[in-house]
Design a protein around this nucleic acid. Structure first.
Length: 625
DNA sequence: TAACTCGGACTTTCAAGAGT
DNA sequence: CTCTTGAAAGTCCGAGTTAT
């Protein structure tokens, strides 16, 4: 498992051969094989087909060798990325749903035995993907999408209230070279680490808290863990070369000499989340499976694992417990929302202690853990012990697991079977203690664990009820990026199941309006928004809409706006945005045909036409997005 | 004064559409 | 299928700025 990297594959461009065709593949030849012999009259300006990243970023002449003379002199690593010159995104009528062009990275220090790999990664406004030169490169665009938003952190509508401890910087040099120039006090690699802690950690708090981990990293060489953190942190920094960092993380984790310990499990989990957020779900699942195998091999599901491997340090013990449960949550999200697996972890007996509250974890005042058996045995009404928000997140995901188990045993459940499952979801809400009913605390801070718990429960509700809702969702078939389409037998009745999924979709849209930056949420929120959008779009596609049409459109606007915002960090949101937008366009087109043919039926021409005027304005707004 | 930054002129390349 | 066109993506000159 650890001797080879299953995720090292050679990618071919999926959207267009042209962007990476041999004629445009201007990677430099081997050192010394590239004499620039040109006629004298052309020597005034000899332009190389491709400048290395360092020269490009500095606007300096590159000789095109590998390494080039400038990098050689300065002892920088000489990195070339394939040119996307002239590439304007995939063809409008082709390659839907595929990721855009891959970027190949060739380094002068790459081992001869290391396969030349490309990361199939695409990100709006990112480097390497994303080397931002003078024009504010927007990077490759997920299929069928318009020009993506450019700067991420700066452009966020709900930008961070307080600033992260790094600044944006344009310089790209010294990513991996022996000599790493300092940029504004913090170099790019350090900025990625800081971005990881500032933006990503609160949504997936299983690594040690920042100060503890940074101290540990100084004492203990955990290159693979650092590489994974840097990779995910790079999502939040415009000029960070995410592709190169992805490769670095993969190589580091899958190196044969990488120690098979719980730190490796943590690194794999981070890599998995990063790949998943980068529209690379299959590979994310592969990494997650590897992480699960290793975790079981190490016995991380055993009660005493944390104590044995915690070195008497309660924070580290808590980190090991959280690592197991985080893997459980991610496994459940991938199974429940992406529907790419069967949530294998739901069937693994786990004796691992339940996580404490976030503030306890950060402060280091960690109480002795409780266990799932305690949680299940509690009399909800009369308990005097309050479980952590993380625990309710686990409980929410357990319900998703029950639902998937039921679906495995009976793929076509009747209404009674669905109601039995629904009782778990309703009970989860009913038995939340009072202090866990508010997502925002009195000091205005969001409880991200509770947020995710609610998000999971609403998603579970949609997954559970949609097939009996009789709500025709066939028009949303193209939306497969996050929440694949499920065929539903349409009916004419507005039944209780339809009501349940519509209410859940509304609740999900409501989560968007919470006064916190959207990018602070887990990227899995993207998938849940997409799931809600499928419900909204299905309703919208029905002529005699069962909802207040205005509310519906407002919620769709919220969803698309949120996806666009999340796209500034997560390419998976870009894909989902494009697909939702495409379906909205299709519905609008069909409604226009209704006008042409005069099929407005009982609604009446006037009402229908008024609705169409509003919908046209919505479509225009969508186009502007 | 050496080193660095970056605006912008100029070049290359591609997708899309027109023409055959 | 080829040709043309418009525009994005790219190179890197050289003026201005900063560091030593």
């Amino acid at each position: 498992m650890d001797s080879i990297s299953p995720i090292h594959t050679i990618q071919t461009p999926s959207t267009s051969n042209s962007s990476l065709s041999p004629s445009s593949d201007h990677l430099p030849d081997k050192q010394g094989e590239r004499p620039l012999s040109v006629p004298d009259h052309q020597k005034d300006r000899i332009t190389v087909p491709s400048a290395c990243v360092a020269c490009r970023s500095k606007h300096l002449k590159c000789d095109g060798h590998n390494p080039c003379s400038r990098c050689s002199t300065n002892e920088y690593e000489c990195v070339y990325v394939r040119s996307r010159r002239g590439f304007k995104g995939p063809r409008r009528n082709g390659a839907q749903g595929k990721t855009a062009a891959a970027v190949s990275v060739s380094t002068s220090t790459a081992s001869a035995t290391t396969p030349r790999v490309t990361c199939p990664l695409v990100r709006p406004g990112a480097a390497s993907s994303t080397i931002n030169t003078t024009t504010g490169n927007t990077g490759n665009i997920p299929s069928g999408l318009a020009t993506p938003p450019d700067n991420r952190l700066q452009a966020l509508p709900f930008g961070p209230a307080d600033h992260p401890p790094y600044e944006r910087n344009r310089d790209l040099t010294g990513l991996e070279g022996n000599k790493q120039p300092q940029i504004s006090g913090l170099d790019l690699r350090q900025k990625c680490i800081e971005a990881f802690f500032y933006h990503f950690w609160p949504a997936h708090p299983f690594l040690l808290p920042r100060d503890n981990l940074l101290r540990l990293l100084k004492e203990k060489h955990l290159d693979h863990l650092e590489a994974a953190m840097r990779y995910v942190g790079s999502f939040y920094i415009d000029q960070a070369p995410t592709t190169a960092l992805c490769l670095e993380a993969e190589r580091s984790i899958y190196r044969a000499d990488c120690p098979k310990d719980a730190f490796k499990v943590q690194a794999m989990l981070i890599l998995c989340i990063g790949l998943d957020g980068y529209t690379y779900q299959e590979k994310a699942l592969q990494v997650l499976t590897d992480a699960q195998e290793l975790a079981l091999e190490l016995g991380m599901n055993k009660r005493d694992f944390a104590a044995i491997h915690g070195n008497g340090w309660s924070t580290l013990e808590e980190s090991w417990r959280r690592t197991w449960w985080e893997m459980y949550i991610i496994d459940g999200m991938i199974a429940g929302v992406h529907q790419k697996s069967f949530f294998p972890m739901k069937d693994i007996p786990a004796e691992v202690g339940l996580p404490c509250e976030e503030w306890q974890y950060v402060s280091g005042n960690i109480p002795g853990p409780h266990y799932l058996s305690d949680f299940d045995d509690e009399d909800f009404a009369h308990r005097d012990y309050s479980y952590s928000s993380f625990t309710y997140r686990i409980a929410a995901m357990r319900n998703m697991g029950r639902l998937l188990t039921g679906r495995q045993m009976n793929p076509n459940p009747d209404s009674a079977a669905v109601d039995r499952m629904d009782a778990y979801l309703v009970n989860w809400r009913l038995h939340l203690p009072d202090n866990k009913k508010q997502l925002i605390s009195s000091d205005g801070k969001l409880d991200e664990m509770l947020f995710q718990a609610n998000m999971i429960t609403e998603a579970s509700t949609i997954v559970l009820h949609r097939e009996l809702s009789e709500l025709d969702s066939s028009i949303t078939t193209p939306i497969d990026s996050c929440a694949p389409h499920h065929p539903i037998t349409p009916g004419t009745n507005y039944n209780v199941h339809a009501s349940k999924i519509i209410t859940a979709a509304q609740s999900i849209s409501k989560l968007i309006t919470l006064p916190v930056p959207l990018i602070k949420h887990t990227h899995f929120f993207t998938c849940v928004i997409t799931l809600a959008s499928v419900v909204h779009l299905s309703c919208w596609s029905v002529l005699f809409t069962i909802l207040n049409d205005d509310d519906l459109k407002q919620q769709l606007k919220l969803n698309t706006g949120a996806l666009k915002t999340l796209w500034q960090v997560w390419p998976s949101a870009g894909r989902a945005f494009g697909q939702v937008k495409g379906v909205a366009g299709e519905i609008f087109q069909r409604k226009k045909e209704v006008i042409e043919r005069g099929w407005w039926g009982e609604v009446g021409e006037e009402v229908f036409m008024r609705g169409m005027v509003e919908e046209r304005s919505y479509m225009e707004e969508l186009q502007l997005l």
